[in-house]
């Protein structure tokens, strides 16, 4: 993902220009901002609040409510481990531990070089292939700790 410095508000302005300056557009604008910056930088949120004439507190509330929004810079690749019931029973915990060993950060954290962010999620609707690990957009079913390194290396590549 192309990195946009957080201080660069021109991208935010461009996004804002595409919507009516009204509260109902808030979530869509936040989604676009998230896609562009890979997180929600606080100065951009301040600008969004001002442009839509929505209190900053409300923008903050919405930004923290949805799990898909992050207020911290995220890694280029998001690694999600499903820790829902089925995956938990089939060893999701071991996957998380292996990831921590490989990347040196825990769930909810990002590696210093901003290449990976680890997240845990609750059931991705693929319980039959538990435990499930998702690297970028690629789903790995019956994931094994011994293969975590491979999953990370392949990232979102299509070939298996």
């Amino acid at each position: 993902m192309a990195e946009i410095p957080r201080s660069d508000l021109s991208v935010a302005e461009e996004i804002l220009g595409g919507y009516p300056a009204e509260e109902p557009a808030l979530i869509q604008i936040l989604q676009d901002v998230h896609r562009a910056y890979n997180y929600l930088p606080c100065d951009v949120l301040e600008r969004v609040a001002e442009a839509l004439d929505v209190p900053l507190a409300k923008v903050f509330s919405v930004s923290t409510f949805y799990k898909s929004f992050s207020l911290e810079p995220q890694g280029d690749t998001i690694v999600k481990v499903c820790t829902g019931t089925a995956c938990h029973i089939r060893g999701a915990g071991l996957l998380v531990e292996e990831l921590e060993r490989q990347l040196g950060v825990g769930p909810g954290e990002t590696t210093e070089d901003l290449s990976f962010t680890i997240k845990t999620v609750n059931c991705v609707g693929a319980c039959a292939m538990a435990p499930v690990m998702i690297v970028a957009d690629k789903y790995w079913g019956s994931a094994k700790p011994t293969r975590v390194k491979k999953y990370l290396a392949k990232g979102g590549d299509d070939e298996n």
Binding site: P55, A57, K58, K67
Partner: peptide, 10 residues
């Protein structure tokens, strides 16, 4: 008419 604080997270 201030709205300085809000509920955060979930």
């Amino acid at each position: 008419g201030v709205s300085a604080i809000s509920s955060a997270d979930r």
